[in-house]
């Protein structure tokens, strides 16, 4: 039982990373923009989020640093990095009308480069090692709930022992669900993604919606990269662990059928797949083969979701297609 609980807790920790990435990309794709740069965005979020927390601690000193402020700064730094990266993507695809696929790939190359560069540069500049104090590390990975809730057998660990970011992602998923289904702005955004020409004719400013959704969505995705660095990676820059996570997030968007609520359990499920090789041993299967499990599952998910041609579960109709008012 305790092994199962430990697995769930670890799955949720990794799932949080994926959840931010997925939620951000859902928001972007709802506006009809397919941003394939999530991988690069998450790298940038990771490097700049870590930089935010690290330099904050360096400036105010270890003793005076507050965990709460560090969390806020890390989130802000990551969000800004992601927002700037997606603003570049937005400018090139929305205003300059370039191909979304290639621009997204370019953003992946650019973003992984920037993330790597920043992470490495910080390491070299700070004498070979960038790490936060244990006090801040605890702040990043400990729960916000009081002990008595955490100490409830089984449920306490499963529900109340996760880090702050998980609950933030949870709230975000609920808020996005509410936004898409219950607010006028959310409905407008969906209209832009489904049929920009109709939305345009109805007087909706499609350019504004596309820009905002892309930039905010990119910022949210970037937070995921930061969460990976400050929780799973133990507050040091670790690019190898982050590689592929952004792409999984893009795949998860399809798996979740563009629904924020599905992203919650989808992310935790894939979080479990990602860390299972560390926790659950299966005899006859070598670790290296075990590690590719999430990718094999993703392929199977892609195939199954494409085979089932359900009218309800389709991507936004204009996804990946740029909208030019002049070209009808």
């Amino acid at each position: 039982m305790s092994a199962l609980i430990a697995l769930v807790v670890a799955a949720v920790t990794f799932g949080t990373v994926l959840m931010f990435g997925t939620l951000g990309e859902i928001l972007t794709e709802k506006s009809g923009n397919l941003n394939l740069g999530v991988e690069g965005i998450m790298y940038m979020g990771g490097a700049f989020g870590l930089a935010g927390a690290f330099y904050y601690e360096k400036i105010v000193g270890e003793a005076a640093s507050s965990g709460f402020v560090a969390i806020i700064l890390a989130i802000l730094a990551a969000f800004l990095a992601g927002a700037v990266a997606s603003a570049i993507y937005g400018f090139i695809t929305i205003t300059l009308r370039a191909n979304q696929n290639v621009t997204g790939l370019a953003l992946t190359i650019f973003g992984t480069g920037i993330g790597q560069f920043t992470g490495e540069f910080m390491r070299v500049k700070e004498g070979g090692f960038v790490a936060l104090s244990n006090h801040l590390k605890d702040a990043f990975s400990s729960t916000i709930f009081p002990d008595f809730l955490k100490n409830i057998p089984v449920i306490g660990k499963m529900l109340f022992s996760h880090n702050f970011f998980f609950y933030l992602a949870l709230i975000l998923a609920l808020a996005m669900h509410f936004f898409f289904s219950r607010t006028k702005t959310g409905l407008y955004l969906r209209a832009v993604g489904e049929s920009p020409s109709t939305a345009d004719a109805a007087g909706i400013n499609t350019t504004k919606y596309k820009y905002l959704a892309t930039i905010i969505g990119g910022g949210i995705s970037a937070i995921g990269g930061m969460v990976y660095i400050v929780t799973t990676a133990g507050c040091v820059w670790n690019h190898s662990g982050l590689s592929g996570v952004g792409w999984l997030a893009v795949a998860l968007v399809i798996f979740c059928m563009w629904r924020p609520l599905n992203a919650i359990w989808g992310s935790v499920l894939f979080g479990a797949l990602m860390i299972m090789y560390l926790r659950v041993r299966i005899i006859f299967i070598p670790t290296e083969i075990y590690k590719i499990l999430p990718y094999v599952v993703t392929v199977i998910v892609l195939v199954i979701s494409s085979m089932r041609n359900n009218k309800e579960k389709q991507p936004p109709a204009s996804l990946g297609v740029n909208y030019f008012r002049e070209e009808r």
């Binding site: 690069g40 621009t103 790939l105 650019f110 973003g111 480069g113």
Partner: peptide
Amino acid sequence: SISDIVIGILLFCMLS
């Protein structure tokens, strides 16, 4: 990784 950054910028400019 500066090379990746320059390659990314090259692509951005070319697409633009």
